[in-house]
Design a binder for these strands. Structure first.
Length: 571
RNA sequence: UGGGGUGUCGCCAAGUGGUAAGGCAGCUGGUUCUGAUCCAGCCAUUCCGAGGUUCAAAUCCUUGCACCCCAGCCA
């Protein structure tokens, strides 16, 4: 009896430990998280880790703490130059596809007015000032990691002047970059993020949500903590590179005028982002692959984007399981692609019906089988020890196709398949023995002749062992199909550390191989886009969601089956 | 050379002073009309290194070392 895939064993992680302690100490009575993407691109599997963490936490703790515990989807839309509604739509679709729903859809831009008020308050308190240094001067005054910065000459402007300037910034009296609002903290702080950080910049650019209402926009470090505070976020979870920003996150919240009014004092916690070998996860590289037309689009099945994985045939369940198996911790790490591949095989092993498909056909004529006879044979969709027990009929006739790779003119040791004089079992059908090899003038094998043993249908042959079983398809009943064989995006674990486009050299030229003369069993002629199958002995495939239609069958290989024979060959 | 982090099996990752979980990968063997699945077994005398405290240390102390992040008017 095959048990259904056990849920991955999950041990607690440091985030859950923190939450448990907070709850125990009475600091919170509910847990509110948020997933805060910037709507400037597509989500990838790295985001899935964050989504599973944030939404997963809300789901888990809601069971103990009841309603009120929730996870928001918030678009971090503070840079109008890069962001777009189009991306928001894609992100929402991806989150939903992964199986999550948000309790409230928000935008950082919802709070622009309030952020502005807080900024005026900061100015009145003498904690922020309008700086009129140029871009280059600001950079110069900031110092570097080993030398302290210098105070801006505008740092001591009066509250009145600052207020006046800031109000005029809002009114649009200045050009882009003419002034900025900065927090007045400490130019000598060892944490560079605390050297009078920029809070607002002037951008005469329309925003996809607020239109032309604003020409000054808050920076991430100012907008994020305020958004969290307003929404009552209890645990604000982000990735490791924001560790240095935490001090500023705290400074911002602690200096809000109505600090005490907020439902909870949010705290930021950082975890290690996901890294995967044999692929790329950086926004920049993904963008370059798409814009450089190295792939067909954001949903190219070679890509680790959510849209790409979906089209490739990955299930949401398998991705969620993957996220829980990789865990949540603080050490930078690179997860092995084999882990992801395991998760999808594990899922599909349970759910995908088995069918027969010949990818690279080699015709076999069964010389002792009656010319016009056709037998309808029973073929189970799932192995006998599975709970599901559906089956279909597959036609058997005199001419069939088998896989080219399942024949060897001169078989090597331990090759259990077809070769001159050798006998194999045809899955769900008879055993056949290869009696003759037909070649063209170049010596290529073009056809095989074989004889079948009528006594071997549903029974073992008498007095001999047949080791191999191969898949096949009846020549005159088979449907034609295009099959896209996908493999890992990169041919090396990690592209060279180099900047620019060097990683393109690491792109696996065989990440996509298109086969157009495939022969698939009759039943697949009626398959629908999005249906997943196991092509026996080969792998899991999905009928392409865009291109597959009746009469023009197109299947994508999701992942191969484990192949210990192939592995043994490599040694 | 400043500050913030991290170092436990090939890859993830538990472990919170009591004598190294689990998953993936790998290796053996068994079952099998998928060289798949499934099943059984193996896989860290040792936790970045060196000292120290302790009856007892991956866990505490000292001191090295390695790697990551911070000098966008990006997030």
């Amino acid at each position: 009896m095959t048990s259904s895939a056990p849920a991955p064993t999950k041990t607690g992680d440091f985030i859950r430990d923190i939450i448990d302690e907070d709850l125990k100490a009475g600091r919170h009575t509910k847990v509110i998280t948020r997933f805060p993407p910037e709507p400037n691109g597509f989500l990838h599997i790295g985001h899935a880790k964050s989504i599973c963490l944030n939404f997963g936490l809300a789901l888990e703790y809601r069971e103990k703490l009841g309603a009120g515990t929730r996870c928001h989807l918030r678009f971090d839309d503070t840079d109008p130059a890069k962001e777009d509604t189009l991306f928001e739509d894609g992100i929402q679709a991806d989150v939903r596809w992964l199986g999550f729903d948000w309790d409230g859809l928000y935008h950082a831009s919802d709070y622009f007015e309030q952020m502005y008020d807080y900024a005026e308050h900061l100015i009145k308190e003498g904690k922020a000032f309008v700086c009129s240094l140029t871009d280059a001067e600001i950079k110069e005054y900031r110092g570097n990691v080993t030398t302290p910065g210098k105070n801006s000459p505008y740092r001591d402007r009066s509250v009145e002047e600052n207020l006046d300037l800031f109000r005029r910034m809002r009114k649009g009296e200045f050009k882009d970059s003419e002034h900025v609002l900065r927090g007045k903290i400490d130019m000598a702080n060892a944490n560079m993020k605390m050297r009078d950080p920029m809070l607002y910049r002037i951008r005469h650019t329309a925003h996809h949500m607020t239109g032309d209402k604003w020409c000054i926009y808050p920076m991430y470090d100012y907008a994020h903590p305020i958004s969290d505070a307003i929404e009552g976020i209890t645990h604000s979870i982000c990735t490791l590179e924001f560790e240095n920003n935490r001090e500023l996150y705290d400074w911002t919240i602690d200096n809000l005028i109505d600090y005490a009014k907020f439902p909870s004092r949010p705290h930021q916690y950082e975890f290690a982002r996901l890294n995967l070998n044999y692929t790329v996860l950086s926004k920049r590289r993904l963008l370059e692959l798409v814009e450089g037309k190295h792939v067909s689009g954001w949903d190219d099945p070679r890509l680790p984007t959510i849209a790409g994985l979906r089209r490739r045939g990955y299930t949401p369940e398998s991705i969620r399981n993957f996220c829980t198996t990789v865990g949540v911790a603080k050490a930078n790490s690179v997860v092995d692609m084999a882990q992801l591949e395991f998760c999808i095989r594990d899922d599909l092993n349970q759910s995908a019906p088995r069918v027969l498909a010949v990818l690279k056909p080699l015709k076999v004529v069964i010389t002792n089988y009656p010319d016009d006879q056709v037998q309808e044979l029973d073929a189970a969709y799932f192995p006998p020890d599975f709970p599901k027990q559906a089956s279909r009929k597959i036609p058997f006739s005199k001419e069939i196709y088998v896989e080219q790779d399942d024949f060897m003119l001169e078989p090597i040791k331990d090759f259990h398949r077809l070769a001159p004089g050798k006998e194999v079992r045809l899955r769900y059908a008879y055993c056949i023995t290869c009696t003759n090899v037909v070649k063209d003038e170049d010596g290529n094998v073009t056809e095989l002749h074989a004889t079948y043993d009528p006594a071997t249908l549903g029974a073992n042959p008498e007095g001999r062992k047949v080791k191999g079983t191969i898949h096949w398809v009846s020549a005159k009943h088979a449907a034609n199909a295009e099959v896209r064989l996908y493999d890992r995006l990169l041919s090396v674990e990690a592209p060279p550390a180099g900047k620019d486009s060097e990683f393109l050299n690491a792109v696996n030229p065989n990440a996509l191989q298109v086969l157009t003369d495939c022969k698939v069993e009759r039943s697949l002629a009626e398959s629908k886009a999005g249906e997943r199958f196991q092509f026996e002995r080969q792998g899991y495939f999905i009928a392409d969601e865009k291109d597959h239609k009746p009469g023009a069958l197109v299947f994508n290989r999701i992942v191969t089956l484990k192949d210990s024979w192939a592995r043994a060959q490599k040694k």
